[in-house]
Design a protein around this nucleic acid. Structure first.
Length: 525
RNA sequence: GUCCCCAUCGUCUAGCGGCCUAGGAUAUCGCCCUUUCACGGCGGCGACCGGGGUUCGAAUCCCCGUGGGGACGCCA
């Protein structure tokens, strides 16, 4: 498959990686790993308004947390000289030209389009001047005069890339046809630019031409360099992908319509095309594009981290969003790398619903390494304000591991584990009211009291030892286990649910058990 | 409005012309296990958007509808 080089190109404008981006990243990463290729991270920070260094850091942090590490890193803003250089090159070759319209004039064109109930296209006055200039003769004179006027007005030109084959002619008061740029001519088959896509197959784009009354994709001459010399997205992407020798562009579906424009730039530069693969998007529960602003759900990876999700669960979950491998649901990272292929990426968009993520997370908690989970739980206890940082740090790892074994089968997230297990680390828990009502009466209090008194005599303070001891105790009192179990659980944990009684019991020091039992009895008298 | 993409259980998906009275997972419901809660085991409910073709045969191929989504910037 040659040298596989893929990239992801986030714009650092949000608070870290969100679900959709993480999924695209994962697919790129898996593709690179599968082919022993190179995975490039490129920060598209050319939007000076919205881009911030801390956002870039947040994205890196999230990707690292997920284990999606990159081989090379670039910052688009640091490449503007190169972008200008290529823009100049296009200018020299006649594929691009200087465009002098002011924002107000463009606005006016948009308004005009709206009034005439047609799609906005760039009317191409500067384009026409460029054509005339190239033509020479009288027209060129006229064009030069116009350009000189613009210049004396102090207008700073931006640079546009030639795509359209029409322009509005003011003199004739009508749309006129222009010759197609040669690279467009070369690229088109049956008057259409065909995007070959590894996932979608071929998509043909025929362009609109108002001069011919032809409907089609709305494509105007593309602004590639703003008046201030900064590049625009569609242009910078091509230059960067070209320079970075990207072999496969794997990105969201929403970019499919950009692809013909980008292909045209490759063609104008006479550069080889990368292969394209457009992934179906991820939708929110209302079936709209998953968005940071609109979607009323967690879209940030970091939020899932805070809620106690494991990175391997998220990776596994994300992998199965739009990709499948037969009936297999659970994949280790190595299995994913092994099995991943663009051939088995689906075509339809997937709704993001975290139900299955919760299940997967529970699975990974159940099967995970207790030593690692113990440390994660330690952090979670702090995150969830159950323990102070110093108290959490002081906890012995064994106690945390014990907690993990006690609750791994009962918790879907680390946060849930920390929350349901909070009584293990704190004395100030409340008793479940319904439970007290249901299980605590005079008999239960008496039994608990006697049990508390006897417990100190238990010789073997282990799970099995306590089981034997308790059975003996109950036999003497002629009581069944069910008479003791729930009252004791309530007294020790405040809850009517939880791990086995003896496992819970032996989690504590023997004296602490007595203390907790007595405290509960006092509270219930 | 124009262009583009998509269409199987609530959700994620398998299916690439006969293996389909459509499979798995999740969610949900029931039963079992059980000191509680879970886990686990077993079972139930639940889908091929509609209409035309093509074919001996269509969830699968084609066309037309319908529905959903996306893109139409000096944002990325």
């Amino acid at each position: 498959m040659g040298d596989v080089r893929v990239r992801i190109a986030p714009s650092p404008t949000g608070d870290g990686a969100h679900i959709g981006f993480a999924r695209t990243t994962l697919f790129n990463w898996l593709f690179a790993k599968h082919h022993q290729g190179t995975f490039v991270l490129r920060s598209e920070d050319t939007d000076a308004e919205r881009s911030k260094p801390e956002y870039e850091e947040a994205i890196k942090r999230d990707l690292e947390w997920l284990g999606l590490t990159w081989d090379e890193f670039y910052r688009q803003s640091e490449r503007s000289d190169r972008h200008r250089e290529i823009a100049q090159q296009l200018l020299q070759s006649g594929a691009a030209y200087e465009s002098y319209e002011t924002p107000d004039e463009i606005q006016a064109q948009q308004t005009r389009a709206q009034q005439e109930k047609r799609n906005y296209v760039y009317e191409g006055k500067s384009r026409l001047m460029a054509e005339w200039l190239a033509e020479g003769g009288e027209k060129a004179q006229k064009a030069q005069t116009q350009i000189d006027v613009w210049k004396t007005e102090g207008r700073q030109p931006m640079i546009r890339f030639k795509i359209q084959d029409y322009a509005w002619d003011e003199d004739q008061n009508q749309w006129i046809s222009l010759p197609k740029p040669t690279y467009r001519e070369k690229l088109e088959q049956n008057n259409a630019v065909v995007v070959p896509d590894l996932i979608k197959g071929d998509t043909a784009y025929e362009f609109e031409n108002p001069a011919l009354g032809k409907q089609g994709a709305v494509v105007s001459d593309l602004v590639i360099l703003r008046a201030d010399g900064t590049p625009t997205y569609n242009f910078a992407v091509v230059v960067d992908d070209m320079d970075m020798k990207i072999s496969h562009i794997i990105r969201g579906d929403e970019h499919l319509n950009n692809t013909p424009k980008q292909m045209l730039i490759y063609a104008a530069l006479d550069m080889p095309m990368p292969q394209f693969a457009h992934l179906p998007m991820i939708l929110d529960k209302t079936k709209k594009k998953l968005s940071k602003r609109r979607s009323e759900m967690d879209v940030y990876i970091s939020n899932y981290q805070i809620k106690g999700f494991l990175p391997e669960a998220i990776v596994n979950f994300l992998a199965r969003l739009g990709w499948s491998h037969g009936d297999q649901e659970v994949f280790s990272v190595d299995e994913l790398i092994q099995a991943f292929s663009l051939d088995t990426v689906g075509l339809s968009p997937a709704v993001f619903d975290d139900e299955k993520l919760v299940w997967l997370n529970a699975h990974y908690i159940k099967t995970g390494d207790p030593i690692r989970l113990a440390e994660l739980l330690r952090q979670q206890l702090v995150t969830d304000d159950i323990l102070s940082e110093s108290d959490a740090a002081a906890l012995p790892s064994e106690k945390l591991q014990e907690t993990v074994t006690l609750y791994a089968e009962r918790a879907s997230t680390l946060s849930e584990m920390a929350e349901t297990g909070r009584f293990l680390f704190r004395e100030d828990f409340a008793y479940d009211e319904k439970g007290v009502e249901k299980f605590i009466d005079a008999d239960a209090l008496t039994l608990l009291g006697e049990y508390a008194q006897n417990i100190e005599q238990a010789g073997d303070y282990s799970v099995s030892g306590m089981e034997t001891f308790t059975q003996g105790f109950l036999d003497r009192k002629e009581k069944k286990f069910k008479h003791l179990a729930q009252p004791a659980r309530l007294a020790l944990t405040g809850q009517t649910k939880g791990a086995g009684l003896f496992e819970t019991l032996t989690f504590f020091e023997q004296q602490n058990v007595v203390k907790r039992l007595q405290r509960a009895i006092e509270a219930w008298q």
